[in-house]
Design a protein around this nucleic acid. Structure first.
Lengths: 180, 180
DNA sequence: GTCTATATGGTGATAGAC
DNA sequence: GTCTATCACCATATAGAC
């Protein structure tokens, strides 16, 4: 990373944001260029094709994920609580890249599908270090996943229903872990 | 319903399948027509615009959902177990319509967003009839949601990891319900 | 490094034949 | 009810000016 050209990063970020907010259909090269503040030709100088742009988003996800795994394993609250809690955080870099790659995966983009597999496996592995019972660990992971998908959903119901009950949901996670 | 023209139904089904399998980008009028076995013009006789097609998919979801709620509340195993268990079933009519509307919602389609809110609220309401504790009910719903999103994911990891542990996950749901 | 201009093909929708 | 032909517009990508 060190000092990558500013324009490149702005373009990748714009593309990821477009994918999250408006979907693959709307995430055209021209719309991405406009959001990044460059022209179509300017964008295509940095990324020769749309596929190259997708690749950059995937790399952004993998890097943000690696940093997240470090924070997660170092977290005093424990991996599972960290995972479920941060599932309600939308707008972070990790979150935007994850959602963007998810959109690509959902339209059949193979490299994105593989990247998401790696990311999911990484999270579950860390939860299983803390929570020895395999099925409890999986259940906790599913709660976090469900929470994440609900939170990242556009509708008012999805946005409001679970996120405000986070503390209570974390209590249920504790119950699962401790067997009471 | 009784006896709706066969062609119309085949077209809606083709559009929903395209949305699920290939995403909004690939779900063009022409591709949908080809999958349904009609020409572009033939499709546009039944559905004057793409928006009309989207509306039909939403109606299909709401109807399949209504039927699902009936089965869910009549289910001897209980609403929550029914909900989590059926979250791993992919390929059903309900599943395809849900996923299709989800794709539309994720690209910002307002009517789809509203329909999904209704569907989610309907499921949670029924779970809460069985599971009195609000937060336990929400947790169970999240497990089902997480399971559903993992199962509907293209990658091999997502497909295999949780679905085969379904019985063990249902056991965790019981633990949450019964407080042990 | 960034722009404009342009080639080429896809995409939604209309008109009208059968 | 279904088709072909057609239109206007949009998307990706290239070429070349600055």
């Amino acid at each position: 990373m060190s000092r990558p050209p500013l324009a490149k990063e702005k373009i990748v970020d714009a593309y990821a944001s477009m994918l999250c907010d408006e979907g693959e259909r709307a995430a055209t090269i021209e719309a991405t260029a406009a959001r990044a503040g460059v022209s179509k030709g300017g964008l295509l100088y940095h990324f020769a094709s749309k596929e190259a742009l997708a690749q950059a988003v995937i790399e952004g996800l993998l890097q943000a994920h690696a940093e997240d795994l470090e924070r997660m394993s170092a977290s005093p609250e424990g991996a599972s609580r960290y995972f479920v809690r941060t599932s309600t955080i939308i707008g972070s870099e990790l979150d935007r890249y994850f959602l963007a790659v998810l959109r690509l995966a959902q339209s059949g983009h193979e490299p994105s599908i593989e990247a998401l597999d790696v990311v999911h496996a990484g999270w579950l592995d860390l939860i299983r270090v803390e929570v020895k019972d395999k099925y409890v660990a999986e259940t906790i992971m599913l709660i976090g996943e469900g929470l994440y998908y609900q939170t990242s959903m556009p509708g008012p119901w999805s946005k409001g229903t679970f996120a405000k009950d986070l503390e209570h949901l974390l209590l249920q996670v504790e119950r699962l872990k401790n067997g009471n």
